[in-house]
């Protein structure tokens, strides 16, 4: 008789545990299903606005002879090739970082007749400003167009980097359109070996 009562007790306890498990799972599901829409809303309100300025067009350094090595007795000529994303350009700024202990900057010449380029030697980099001349009425849409040549004289042997930078000091790299829209172009860098 006692044994039967004990079996009944265990059965009741197991039943209670099973029921509690069922209730607990239900509570969890109810709470979770209520939480979900709130989380979705939270995600929607915390979308991060991209902090990097979008780029339009490109400005690239290219070697005139496509040889990445140069001897110290020869001048290094780097071409500046631009793409203006189908926009008409009336001026551009350029920042070029390089090792002034490895190269002497000789000159910058515009490859476009209707643009004039003004170079500035800064501490560890060069800054350029190019502006379209008033006499020119032609459109200046750049499509992988060679727009300027930069001439350097190597001083010492080694591997050195020339890099177009978006911003250094007060100087920046950009393209300005005929609507005075400022484009931030994609930029590149070049490694040169001097022997």
């Amino acid at each position: 008789m006692e044994n039967n009562q004990s079996t009944n007790k265990i059965f009741i306890y197991l039943l209670v545990v099973f029921f509690a498990f069922f209730v607990g799972t239900s509570i969890f599901l109810i709470l979770n299903s209520k939480k979900q829409p709130q989380e979705k809303e939270k995600v929607a309100t915390t979308v991060i606005i991209p902090t990097v300025k979008p780029t339009q067009g490109s400005l690239n350094l290219q070697l005139e002879k496509e040889e990445t090595s140069v001897s110290t007795d020869k001048e290094l000529i780097i071409d500046l090739v631009a793409d203006s994303n189908e926009k008409n350009i009336v001026g551009y700024d350029l920042v070029l970082s390089y090792d002034p202990l490895a190269f002497d900057f000789v000159k910058a010449t515009s490859d476009l007749d209707n643009f004039k380029i003004y170079p500035y030697k800064r501490d560890g980099y060069l800054s350029f400003l190019a502006t379209k001349t008033f006499q020119s009425q032609t459109s200046s849409v750049f499509t992988q167009t060679k727009i300027a040549s930069l001439v350097f004289k190597p001083i010492k042997a080694g591997k050195f980097l020339f890099s177009l930078e978006p911003l250094m000091g007060k100087d920046k790299t950009d393209l300005v359109t005929d609507k005075t829209e400022v484009l931030n172009p994609k930029l590149n860098e070049l490694e040169i070996e001097v022997f």
Partner: peptide, 12 residues
Amino acid sequence: SITAYDTSFIYN
């Protein structure tokens, strides 16, 4: 700084 923006602004 005087930038291409300044010269272009007058140009345009």
